[in-house]
């Protein structure tokens, strides 16, 4: 069985900056995987390469066995990405946005699933509201809903809880956990390390375009701690030790 995500020898340079310096990584189906690193480590570039937004200089990437360049249609059908930036189309309501998103993925009548996503993300009351009228946290929720509109088997969440209040954050994690329980593979990047520690079974830590630590969360805590260490302490130690 092919892994949900396979990244092999991926390198990308932007001018003088080596954004990715030969990344090898596999994420198994059904995993809840964390991708951590300081700003500029290459997390978003790696996600963008996986989503086909960035073309690597070398190496290749697959989603559910489909090459993201050669077999881009199938790869994109299997992938849902919550982008880091708070982006939206100001012309449409929340429901229209999700219908359009479904249509992009070849799904015509998707209102049952859209209603379910809206309910789980506490957006039902805002379904007919224009995107412009939503708060930042609400817009973030719609971004999550958009990534889920086509029920992708692999879901990538790039900082999904930035600027989101505690109550919603908890609701969001309940929903994501449920999707993971139903077999969806989750890849998470976050600066809230306690969230990664609580949710992720395995974690990769990146620095300067390289993976500097890759293991189960429990093993990382064991290797880089003294039994009472939390992920933040382990992360700081990994970053300090990484050349």
């Amino acid at each position: 069985m092919s892994p949900a995500i396979r990244v092999a020898g991926v390198a990308k340079r932007f001018g003088a900056t080596q954004a990715l310096a030969g990344i090898d990584l596999e994420v198994a189906e059904g995993e809840f995987f964390g991708l951590l690193g300081p700003n500029g480590a290459g997390k978003t570039t790696l996600i963008s390469a996986l989503a086909g937004l960035v073309r690597p200089d070398s190496g290749h990437l697959e989603v559910m066995g489909h090459d993201v360049q050669a077999d881009y249609r199938q790869a994109r059908l299997k992938l849902g990405v919550v982008p880091q930036e708070l982006v939206f189309d100001p012309f449409f309501s929340v429901r229209q946005t999700l219908r359009i998103q479904s249509g992009y993925y070849g799904i015509r009548r998707n209102d049952d699933w859209i209603d379910e996503i809206l309910a789980n993300l506490d957006l039902t009351g805002k379904a007919e509201a224009n995107m412009r009228s939503l708060s930042g946290g609400m817009k973030r929720r719609v971004l999550v809903a958009q990534a889920l509109a086509h029920k992708p088997p692999v879901i990538v969440l790039d900082e999904p809880t930035a600027g989101v209040d505690v109550e919603l954050r908890q609701g969001l994690w309940r929903f994501i956990r449920r999707l993971n329980g139903e077999g969806h593979t989750i890849v998470l990047t976050t600066h809230y390390l306690e969230e990664a520690e609580a949710e992720c079974g395995r974690i990769a830590m990146m620095k300067s375009g390289r993976i500097v630590a890759l293991d189960t969360t429990a093993n990382l805590l064991r290797r880089f701690g003294d039994g009472t260490t939390n992920l933040e302490d382990a992360f700081m130690r990994v970053m300090k030790e990484a050349v």
């Binding site: 989503a51 086909g52 937004l53 881009y72 249609r73 199938q74 994109r76 059908l77 992938l79 990405v81 982008p83 930036e85 982006v87 939206f88 189309d89 359009i100 998103q101 992009y104 993925y105 070849g106 958009q146």
Partner: peptide, 9 residues
């Protein structure tokens, strides 16, 4: 928002 079209198949 162009990203939504670029992410789609």
């Amino acid at each position: 928002s162009v990203v939504f079209m670029l992410l789609a198949p």
